[in-house]
């Protein structure tokens, strides 16, 4: 069975393309080796074409728009870079930018955390300084906050949500950035990057599963000395 470069495992493909994003696929090392072997078998002679310019390595732009008064960005660019280094090329491949922006009321009355604009743009929204007082939160959201380490006190129709600095940072990292990257990976590795490839509910489930995997890996790495 032959295997083309397009069906490389995503980890290998991501790593290779991050290293040389502008190199044509026919100029990959494996392709060039195969072509040399074919020429030898067919006894064809001639100069080999020079490899095309590989271009600079892939870089994710991190844009920070200052938060408004009373709000802040829990993650710093260094935190995002550290996470990218930890999770490796797979999560970075295809991401064009991560932008930290003031929140918008598009999602009112829901509280926005992050958004993925396909293909490859992740927006992380500013968050209110804790403690938060949020009204009419759904049970699912309260569970999500508790899982992320927040202390949630439920009152009549409202919830008081308090965070430690690290818990809020992790919340935005996983429920915001990695959740959207989970969506991104589904789109990126199907080849149909700007077309909805599955039902939104399934998309969300897979993104949530990806977040859990990442969270486990992150926690385990922190535990190890």
């Amino acid at each position: 069975m032959t295997r083309s470069l397009g069906t490389d495992p995503p980890e290998l493909r991501a790593e290779r393309r991050l290293r040389a994003p502008r190199r044509r696929h026919g100029q990959e090392e494996v392709a060039r080796r195969r072509f040399r072997r074919l020429k030898k078998e067919l006894r064809l002679d001639g100069p080999e074409a020079p490899p095309s310019a590989a271009g600079p390595a892939h870089r994710v732009d991190i844009v920070v728009v200052p938060a408004r008064k009373g709000y802040f960005h829990p993650l710093k660019p260094a935190d995002i870079k550290r996470a990218f280094e930890f999770f490796g090329p797979l999560v970075v491949y295809g991401i064009r930018s991560v932008e930290m922006r003031p929140s918008v009321r598009r999602s009112f009355p829901n509280v926005p955390i992050a958004r993925l604009q396909v293909p490859g743009k992740v927006v992380l929204y500013e968050q209110l300084q804790p403690p938060w007082s949020l009204s009419d939160l759904s049970e699912e959201s309260i569970d999500r906050l508790r899982r992320a380490g927040a202390s949630v006190e439920e009152e009549l129709g409202a919830a008081r949500v308090d965070w430690t600095s690290q818990a809020l940072k992790d919340f935005v990292l996983f429920e915001g950035l990695m959740h959207e990257i989970g969506h991104h990976l589904i789109q990126q590795h199907t080849g149909k990057r700007s077309v909805r490839v599955m039902r939104t509910a399934d998309h969300e489930l897979r993104a949530a599963a990806f977040v859990e995997t990442c969270r486990r890996a992150w926690t385990n790495a922190k535990r190890q000395p």
Binding site: S107, V111, R115, L116, E140, L145, H203
Partner: peptide, 10 residues
């Protein structure tokens, strides 16, 4: 374009 959003739903 296609967007996905992570929110705390009410």
């Amino acid at each position: 374009g296609l967007t996905y959003e992570s929110t705390l739903s009410t």
